[in-house]
């Protein structure tokens, strides 16, 4: 948890620096996949994306699934990340470069998404939602959303908390 604490302070520190604009805009997601007391545990499929009021305005951030299975068998269950599949997945050509990763097991995970790759600063100003959706084989599914306003102008931390498949989720804006 020490690590998280420092990360939380970091954006504040950056804001105080006169040369903050040199620092590239970064979105950091700190998230927890809860420990499950189950006989059969499979690491969940997870998708994260940023979606505008206009639902077509959508930036995929991360997609964790069994992308290395033979014959792409892992793709068979992508439809179960149901809202992501509806909003984006079904119209993508898989695997998607730059966002695809292996599944991760229970615990805390931190990811950073930089403006260079995801071009947040070129998105139209307005209200957006950050979504994180997790679905676990022989388990449950959970979707969390965090409203955010673009452009990201100041350091901010947003929090959301899941009930079953997701634990604490923090979205840290580091302009």
């Amino acid at each position: 948890m020490r690590k998280t604490g420092i990360k939380k302070l970091l954006p504040l520190l950056l804001c105080t620096l006169p040369m903050a604009s040199v620092q590239a805009l970064t979105l950091e997601v700190q998230m927890e996949l809860p420990q499950m007391k189950v006989a059969e545990y499979h690491a969940p499929y997870v998708a994260m994306w940023l979606q505008g009021q206009d639902k077509r305005q959508l930036t995929n951030l991360a997609l964790w699934y069994d992308h290395e299975m033979k014959n792409d068998e892992g793709q068979q269950w992508l439809k179960d990340i149901r809202q992501w599949w509806r909003r984006s997945g079904r119209s993508l050509s898989l695997p998607v470069d730059g966002i695809t990763g292996a599944t991760r097991t229970a615990g805390h995970h931190t990811l950073q998404f930089d403006d260079k790759q995801f071009a947040f600063s070129s998105l139209p100003a307005g209200e957006y939602q950050f979504f994180i959706e997790a679905v676990r084989e022989v388990g449950g599914r959970e979707l969390l959303s965090i409203p955010v306003t673009l452009p990201f102008e100041k350091a901010q931390t947003f929090k959301a908390s899941g009930n079953n498949e997701l634990g604490q989720v923090q979205l840290v804006v580091m302009p």
Binding site: E73, Q76, K79
Partner: peptide, 8 residues
């Protein structure tokens, strides 16, 4: 058994 499918 399913109406929405992913994968090839």
């Amino acid at each position: 058994a399913a109406t929405v499918l992913s994968a090839e």
